[in-house]
Design a protein around this nucleic acid. Structure first.
Lengths: 207, 207
DNA sequence: AGAAGTTGATTAAACGCTTGTTTAATATTG
DNA sequence: CAATATTAAACAAGCGTTTAATCAACTTCT
């Protein structure tokens, strides 16, 4: 394997371990074993354990770019269809980057006083900006209800989708009791999307 | 100080440290220093670091009892007022037990495969049961809209309140940019309550 | 073309330090 | 005097990181 691929492999294994066991709860020896490399390679490649964590963030930087705007602007779809796409996109992205989100929740959101925290705060702000700009344009186009709190919308979007994705066991159990069906992760994704689309319709529709 | 009070003091200090730095990220020496006791006392009192974590859960067991039902049943208030009380109660309880919730999020929700996870899953189920029973009674009384997904309501209640409370920096920043005001934690609690009450009205009102 | 040299990758071992826990001695209490 | 509480010190194990030696691949020189 090429050394660049090997580095990426270590990053991915570390990401998974950090997500499930936490940064402090995972030893470099554990990471080395999972990636099937010598312990020293982690210091050799990344400098330190902490810098490996930073490398994870850098590795996922493209995801954090949140360039949804382009997709939506050039389309001839209706405002409502675009909103659905936005929601689908949002939930899907959280699903695809669950490990990263878990790490952010554990190591960044929880002790919010480092430079990393500031970086992710900026990212959240940027995403909120894109989101609220889209809603406002829909409002000015006369499609979306103008009497709606953008932050209320956004916290619901983030809160609901994160809750369903990070409490999968709970949601699954309830659905199992209600219907007898055991939902797959994909089913849960669809459920989150359904709930959110319903939610946005209720809030943005003009009666 | 009495030995029982001292034990409680250690438990509270440990709770705070575990909440902010994680279980693995906090050493027993750190806890001992925070509680101003000798390191050996923690093993002497609790047996081990892990058992101290369990003691935290036992210590907060009364909170986790979630006996909201009593308060609501015997009241002569309207269904809507009772719902507001329920929401107030829910948000307030999360605020008062933020440390515990952080620990549960970090150490329980994240790696869901231990006996502790099962315990908290049962607790969530019990709370959902109380919640949905209340809503259903309101539906049968003809006050609440019958065409509403109980799980959608619940995940929103939990998701929104947790998001606001555990992303305080973000919410504060947005509000600061929008209004110029820097919100206190109490303000954020009120915001969460407002959002949730609005939400439940939108979903449960019969047009 | 083949030996010598250069570079980066990989290894096992060791480093010093911290970890959770235990021990054995001392202090405090009833 | 007995029982409990508290202490400093020691314990083995694990931690993140470094070292120095070896390996592999490629370049350069005759």
């Amino acid at each position: 394997m090429e050394t660049k691929d090997k580095k990426h492999f270590i990053v991915e294994k570390a990401e998974e371990l950090f997500a499930n066991q936490g940064f402090s709860g995972t030893s470099v020896r554990e990471i080395a074993k999972a990636a099937d490399v010598n312990v020293a390679m982690i210091s050799y490649y990344f400098g330190s354990k902490e810098k490996l964590l930073m490398e994870i963030f850098r590795y996922r930087a493209d995801y954090l770019q949140t360039k949804i705007g382009n997709l939506l602007n050039n389309s001839s779809l209706s405002w409502w269809d675009k909103l659905d796409i936005h929601i689908d996109h949002y939930v899907e992205k959280i699903k695809d980057n669950q490990h990263l989100h878990r790490i952010i929740m554990r190591e960044v959101d929880m002790n919010s006083c480092s430079k990393v925290s500031e970086f992710f705060l900026e990212h959240k702000k940027a995403h909120f900006k894109i989101f609220s700009q889209y809603i406002r344009e829909g409002q000015e186009a006369g499609v979306f209800n103008k009497e709606v709190d953008l932050l209320a919308l956004y916290t619901s979007l983030a809160g609901i989708s994160k809750y369903i994705l990070f409490n999968q066991d709970f949601v699954r159990t309830i659905i199992k009791e209600q219907t007898g069906n055991t939902l797959t992760e994909e089913d849960l994704i669809q459920l989150a999307k359904k709930y959110l689309k319903n939610f946005f319709r209720k809030y943005l529709e003009i009666n």
